[in-house]
């Protein structure tokens, strides 16, 4: 565990909490892509199947359980409890275009052709693009609430911090995982445009609005 990984994990946790609290407090999931949240639930489920086979640490187990439970809770709030507020007219990204290529790629490029390993690889590939429906929704409506922007910033920062973690581990532990690194770079790059808008607008107290 190094400082980059810890802050990355905490940033990830913060993102999930921000989203849950926002939906709960406002009793609304307007502006949130249910499809991205479904993809994240799929990501955590397929990645953390090793909970039953491999013990790493209490911290690791605890965080995995939190991520899985929180993602299912979010999906429940969007599709069941606050369904009436869900923006399904704008949430029209075709998720099969993300799920199928991720799955095929995980069959082709993986560390080991074993069920758990392929599902882990699939989750890494899918996570890298899972935010696209959310970014698509923001681009369709042309704006995002500040709290949604904070959520996206925390979520995007997490993989960016993991990039620093991977650089650190490469030098400190001679450890690297090319699949995670390449997918992590892709994931972080997808947020760049958003990061720019976040710094130039949201941090200056303005609403995140895209140019018409």
């Amino acid at each position: 565990m190094n400082i980059f990984r810890l802050t990355g994990d905490l940033s990830h946790l913060l993102a999930i909490i921000i989203l849950l609290v926002k939906i709960w407090k406002t009793r609304s999931c307007a502006g949130i892509s249910g499809k991205s949240q479904l993809l994240f639930a799929l990501v955590y489920t397929t990645r953390y199947l090793d909970l039953v086979s491999t013990y790493i640490s209490a911290y690791n187990t605890f965080m995995k359980l939190i991520f899985i439970c929180a993602s299912y809770a979010t999906v429940y709030l969007i599709y069941m409890k606050f369904k009436a507020t869900y923006d399904h007219n704008h949430d029209t990204f075709r998720v099969e275009f993300l799920i199928l290529p991720s799955f095929v790629l995980s069959l082709l490029i993986n560390h080991d052709f074993a069920v758990l390993e392929i599902l882990w690889t699939f989750s890494i590939y899918l996570e890298s693009v899972a935010i696209l429906p959310q970014l698509f929704l923001v681009s369709k409506t042309g704006e995002a609430e500040s709290i949604t922007s904070h959520y996206l910033f925390a979520l995007g920062s997490y993989r960016g911090l993991y990039l620093l973690n991977w650089i650190y581990r490469y030098y400190a532990e001679s450890h690297y995982d090319l699949i995670a690194i390449v997918a992590g770079v892709v994931q972080t790059v997808l947020y760049c445009d958003f990061f720019y808008l976040y710094v130039t607008k949201v941090l200056k107290g303005k609403k995140l609005q895209l140019p018409a």
Binding site: N60, H111, W120, N165, Y176, D177, A180
Partner: peptide
């Protein structure tokens, strides 16, 4: 490629 036996990251 130097993949670990287990994936210790989240």
């Amino acid at each position: 490629d130097k993949a670990e036996e287990t994936h210790d990251e989240l």
